[in-house]
Amino acid sequence: MNLTVNGKPSTVDGAESLNVTELLSALKVAQAEYVTVELNGEVLEREAFDATTVKDGDAVEFLY
């Protein structure tokens, strides 16, 4: 899956889609429990991480 992460191209191997929690784990995001996630310009509530799917071509920003 090809994404733009914090403005840079990134690839997650072996996945066509992941939820936000899985993406944080796959990318080994440090202190993931404290990060705010913006997906395609929309800031996500932490409670929505498990239910929100990240797909090929999406833009993700991790805000600390």
Rank of each mutant, 00 (worst) to 15 (best):
E47I: 09
E45I: 09
D58L: 03
E38I: 15
G41Y: 04
L44M: 05
L63D: 12
L24W: 00
N2V: 12
S10E: 13
R46I: 05
N6V: 02
V37N: 00
Q31Y: 15
T36E: 07
V29D: 03
A30D: 12
E42A: 10
S10T: 15
F49A: 03
T36D: 06
L63K: 13
L27F: 06
E16M: 14
T36C: 13
T36F: 08
K8N: 08
L18N: 01
A26W: 14
R46V: 06
T11C: 13
D50N: 10
G7T: 03
E16S: 14
G57R: 05
K28H: 12
T53P: 08
V60G: 02
A26N: 06
V60D: 04
Q31S: 11
V29R: 01
L63M: 11
V60C: 06
V54Y: 00
S10F: 15
E45P: 13
L24D: 02
L18W: 07
D58H: 03
Y64T: 12
L44E: 00
L23Y: 00
G14Q: 07
E47Q: 10
A59N: 13
G41A: 03
D58C: 06
L39P: 01
V5H: 02
M1Y: 04
V35K: 02
D56A: 09
K8S: 08
Y64Q: 09
E38T: 15
V5E: 02
F62K: 03
K55H: 11
Y64M: 09
V35F: 09
A51C: 13
F62Y: 07
N40I: 03
E45R: 12
D50H: 08
V29C: 12
L18R: 05
R46N: 06
Q31M: 14
L39G: 00
D13P: 14
A30H: 12
N2M: 12
N40C: 04
K55Y: 10
L27S: 00
V12P: 03
G14R: 08
N2H: 13
A26Y: 15
D50M: 07
E61T: 12
E61K: 14
E47L: 08
F62V: 11
L63F: 15
A15C: 13
S17F: 13
V20M: 10
D13M: 14
T4A: 05
L24K: 00
D50E: 11
L24C: 05
L3T: 03
G14P: 05
G7V: 02
E33S: 09
V35T: 05
E16D: 11
T36R: 09
Y34E: 08
E47N: 11
E22S: 07
V54I: 10
Y64C: 13
S17N: 08
V20C: 04
K8E: 09
T11W: 15
M1P: 03
A15R: 13
D50S: 10
T21L: 09
Y34K: 09
S17W: 11
Y34F: 12
S17Y: 10
E45H: 12
D50G: 09
D50L: 07
G57Q: 05
E45W: 07
N40V: 01
T36S: 07
L3A: 03
T11F: 15
L18P: 01
P9L: 12
K8H: 10
L23F: 03
V29Y: 05
F62M: 06
R46Y: 07
E22L: 07
E61D: 14
K28W: 05
V5R: 00
L63E: 11
V43W: 07
L18M: 14
E61V: 13
L44K: 04
Y34R: 10
R46S: 06
G14M: 10
Q31N: 15
E61Q: 09
E16P: 10
V37H: 00
A32C: 14
M1S: 01
S25R: 15
L18A: 03
L39K: 02
T53C: 14
Y34Q: 09
V43A: 08
L24E: 02
A48V: 09
A30V: 11
A59E: 13
G41F: 04
V60Q: 01
N6Q: 05
T21V: 07
F62G: 01
R46P: 08
E33W: 10
Y64F: 10
G57S: 03
K55A: 06
D13K: 14
F49N: 01
V5F: 03
G41K: 04
D13V: 15
V54S: 01
N19H: 04
N19Q: 04
V54N: 01
G7E: 03
L27M: 07
A32L: 12
T36M: 10
T4F: 08
Y64K: 08
L63Q: 13
V12I: 14
V5C: 06
E22T: 07
T4V: 11
D50I: 06
A15Y: 15
T11L: 11
A32R: 10
F62E: 04
E38S: 15
A48W: 10
G14K: 07
T11H: 15
E45N: 12
E47V: 08
V37S: 00
T36P: 02
L44A: 02
M1C: 06
V60N: 02
T11S: 09
D56C: 06
T53F: 15
A30M: 09
E47W: 12
T21G: 05
S10P: 02
D56Y: 05
G57P: 01
L44C: 06
T52H: 06
T53M: 14
K28R: 11
L23P: 00
E22I: 05
K8Y: 11
P9V: 09
A30G: 10
F62C: 06
A26D: 02
L18K: 04
D56K: 05
T53W: 14
L24V: 05
G7S: 05
E33I: 07
A59Q: 13
V12C: 09
G57I: 01
A59C: 14
A30Q: 11
L3R: 01
Y34P: 05
V43C: 10
K8C: 15
D58R: 00
L24N: 01
V20R: 00
G7Q: 05
T21S: 09
T11I: 13
D56S: 12
E42N: 11
N40P: 00
A30W: 13
E16V: 14
N2E: 07
A15S: 09
V54M: 04
S17L: 09
E33C: 14
M1L: 12
A32H: 11
F62Q: 02
A48G: 06
Y64L: 09
V29E: 04
Y34S: 10
D13R: 14
K55E: 05
T53S: 08
V5Q: 03
F62S: 02
E61P: 00
V43E: 06
L23C: 04
E38F: 15
V43Y: 07
E16C: 12
E16R: 12
D56R: 05
E61W: 15
G7H: 06
D13C: 15
E61N: 15
F49G: 03
A59H: 13
A51W: 14
E45L: 13
A32P: 13
G41D: 03
F49V: 02
A48F: 12
R46T: 06
V54G: 00
